[in-house]
Amino acid sequence: MTEHQIIERLRRIGWRDGPLPADGLRLARVAAQHRAGYELHDGEHSFGAQPAGHFLKRGLDPSERPAVGDFVEVEPGQPPHIVRVLPRRTVLSRAAAGERYERQLIAANIDYVLVLTGLDGDFNPARIERYLSLTEDSGAQPVVLLSKLDASADAIGRIDALRERLPEGTPIHAINGKDPASVAVLAQYLQPGDSAVLVGSSGAGKSTLTNTLLGIDKMATGAVRAHDSRGRHTTTHRALLPLPSGGCLIDTPGMRELKLTGEENLDLFADIEELAESCRFADCGHGSEPGCAVQAALDSGELAPERWRNYLKLRDEREEQAATLEARLRRQRGGRPVERPHSPRGKRERD
């Protein structure tokens, strides 16, 4: 097979122009990770592989190991072995559950993050804001998908309310995941060479949507609970799926916990931070202080209380995670904690 043919084959799974591996090595993309090893795809065939020994070293940062969506160099053998992870152009990650700080990769080398939420009892604007905050640091474009359009009695009202809450220009599409005509709007994000990751809570309809995009019932689906529209985890692991459209979709299990990494900018709330900059005092606590622009916006209805509360929650979580990350990095460098100067008491008016 010629180099041109190899590149054309790799483009079917999202490969962008770049040098091919040295002689004897094979280029493939991580399609899934299992306890027994990895499933790779070379643009034509899927095959199993094991990680090379250096990926198994104790203490290795998990982000340095192969993840779904990675392009990797593979050494032939029985079984083949992944010897190198190529540089990632985009990464979607979250902080892993637990007190110990650890970043968990969700998907690599993606162009779009499709955030799926049902228009039924699953509808939760605060959770959508959390997903979009995580997406900010990924390098990929977020797209909000509102599923179960056929089962919602107040779809228009919920969509309009969400548009007011999210930044202008954020793509929002209401769909019926079972209807190919309804999901045709997603073709613009799944063109040949495009890669998208599908995220959302259990029961939102990810597997149903994936089956419709595939044109076959490949992913298991299940019923949701009547009282909250949540479902069981029918998808048990992340998996990269080449689509008939020429794009690639990474389906993910429902995520019960979405912890920020501490490196988000929270650009989603840029309007709130601009308001805070307009307060009379630079260290305004946005409570009963005179000249508080945030409280004025809350009183006038310009700023919704629930959005303000979610901003505070995400901001505090980001700062806590950032401090944990900083402490971890100091320990790795063998340094001591840096004492921060105490802020002077009393309010300081802006210049």
Results as ranks from 00 to 15, higher is better:
Y189H: 14
Q191N: 03
Q191H: 11
Q191E: 09
D194T: 06
S195E: 02
L198I: 10
L198R: 06
L198G: 10
V199H: 06
G200T: 12
S202A: 15
S202G: 12
S202D: 10
G203N: 07
G203V: 06
A204H: 11
K206G: 15
S207C: 03
S207E: 11
L209V: 07
T210V: 06
N211I: 04
T212H: 08
L214V: 11
L214G: 00
G215S: 02
G215T: 03
I216S: 11
D217G: 06
M219A: 15
G222N: 08
A226Y: 10
A226Q: 15
A226T: 15
S229R: 14
S229L: 06
H233C: 10
T235K: 14
T236Y: 09
T236L: 15
H237P: 01
R238D: 02
A239S: 15
A239M: 15
L241P: 01
L243G: 11
L243Q: 07
P244E: 11
P244F: 05
G246W: 04
C248M: 11
C248W: 00
C248T: 13
C248E: 00
D251I: 07
P253M: 09
M255N: 12
R256G: 09
E257N: 12
K259P: 02
L260D: 08
T261C: 03
E263K: 03
E264R: 02
E264A: 09
N265C: 04
L266A: 04
L266C: 05
D267G: 10
D271F: 08
D271V: 07
I272K: 00
E273V: 13
E274I: 00
E274F: 05
L275E: 09
E277S: 13
E277R: 13
E277C: 05
S278R: 14
S278P: 03
S278D: 13
C279A: 07
R280H: 08
F281P: 09
A282C: 02
D283R: 11
D283F: 05
C284W: 03
C284M: 08
S288M: 02
P290H: 04
G291F: 08
G291L: 00
G291V: 10
C292V: 03
V294E: 02
Q295G: 04
Q295N: 09
Q295T: 08
A296P: 03
A296S: 06
L298K: 04
L298Q: 11
L298R: 07
D299P: 00
S300I: 01
G301H: 11
E302L: 15
E302T: 15
E302G: 04
L303N: 04
A304W: 04
A304P: 02
E306P: 02
E306T: 11
E306Y: 13
R307E: 13
W308M: 07
W308H: 10
W308I: 12
W308N: 01
R309K: 10
N310Y: 03
N310L: 02
K313P: 00
L314C: 11
D316Y: 09
E317S: 09
R318K: 05
E320Q: 12
Q321V: 03
A323Y: 06
T324N: 12
T324R: 14
T324D: 05
L325V: 06
E326C: 05
E326M: 08
A327S: 11
A327Y: 07
A327Q: 14
